[in-house]
């Protein structure tokens, strides 16, 4: 700003503008930007969401509800819940352990470790599925061993769980690491000096400090786990009533010309997404400071 003139600006009409206006734009620019932003959000985000519900209800509530009473739909719901019930706690434990090791200690190679944990974020879902086919498929790395012992990993629940764990792997860790880093180690050190055990210090000091961030991360992790399509599609085998998750069931119904049912099941997932967003927003408004550290990343 070396070339800035060191005198008060002259407004066109010769008066000095109120202080507020120097840090914002003229009203018409403001409203134009708001209009652009809202139109963009409406066109790209809100409209698809409305479409899901509109198409789902295109033939009335009877047809809508019928989509969920079908046995294949129910087994898809059960499978999706099962997969999330295994994958989310797994990533929760992993995320907390990883965040503890990374945030509370200084050691060499930390940046590399963080980058590696991040890796699944940028791996294509299809590749995430492919790698497990290469490891556990009949002709894969462990294929012969698994075959010998009659263990089915891919095209069965374990493969779907593994692929889901992979795609949601960084969620909890990435949320907690900056949060725990920001909180430092003094409180834990105090507790330990006063004689608390490590586990006790974690439970009574660390956990309360990170609980909202943790809940927030688990929520997102869960939404992604229940909604994963590409990776699961590669390892599922699409066996009806056995290895179809809800997103796969959406695709199947769509391919069976059963568009109403397809969008009905999709609306269930969209509803889950909405609930996730609502809770997430509530958490953000109420505990903004507790979770702020991690949000920058995703």
């Amino acid at each position: 700003m070396s070339d800035a003139v060191a005198s008060l600006p002259d407004s066109p009409d010769g008066t000095i503008r109120p202080a507020q206006s120097v840090v914002t734009e003229r009203p018409w620019i403001r409203w134009l930007l708001i209009a652009v932003a809202l139109t963009f959000l409406a066109l790209f985000l809100v409209l698809p969401l409305i479409t899901v519900f509109a198409q789902a209800l295109a033939k009335g509530w009877g047809a809508y509800l019928a989509a969920f009473t079908e046995p294949d739909a129910q087994s898809a719901i059960r499978l999706t819940l099962t997969v999330a019930a295994i994958a989310v706690p797994f990533n929760l434990v992993f995320g907390v352990a990883a965040a503890w090791a990374i945030a509370k200690f200084e050691f060499r190679g930390k940046n590399l470790l963080v980058t590696l944990i991040d890796l699944p974020f940028s791996v294509s879902p299809v590749v995430s599925g492919l790698i497990y086919v290469l490891v556990f498929g009949s002709r894969g790395l462990f294929g012969p061993v698994l075959l010998e012992h009659d263990i089915q990993i891919i095209f069965a629940v374990p493969g779907i769980v593994l692929a889901t764990v992979f795609v949601t792997f960084p969620f909890v860790a990435r949320q907690l690491i900056p949060l725990m880093q920001e909180q430092g180690t003094t409180e834990e050190e105090a507790a330990l000096t006063l004689g608390a055990s490590g586990w006790h210090a974690f439970r009574t000091v660390t956990l309360p400090n990170i609980r909202w961030g943790l809940l927030y991360a688990v929520l997102l992790c869960n939404a992604r786990a229940m909604g994963e399509f590409g990776a699961v599609s590669v390892v599922s085998g699409h066996i009806r009533g056995l290895t179809n998750t809800l997103p796969l069931h959406v695709e199947i119904l769509y391919n069976e010309y059963n568009f109403v049912a397809s969008f009905a099941v999709a609306s269930l997932l969209a509803g889950l997404a909405l609930v996730t967003l609502v809770i997430k927003s509530l958490l953000e408004w109420r505990y903004a400071d507790d979770i702020a550290a991690g949000t920058r990343r995703h």
Partner: peptide
């Protein structure tokens, strides 16, 4: 549920939680 010892050693590196998860789900398919 999971037959034979070699399997267990093959799966040993997987964390305990994962193992439980696997065992649980293998049980379902089994």
């Amino acid at each position: 549920m999971i037959s034979g010892k070699p399997t267990r050693t093959a799966l040993a590196p997987i964390g305990r939680a994962a193992f439980l998860g696997l065992a649980l789900t293998l049980g379902v398919t089994g």
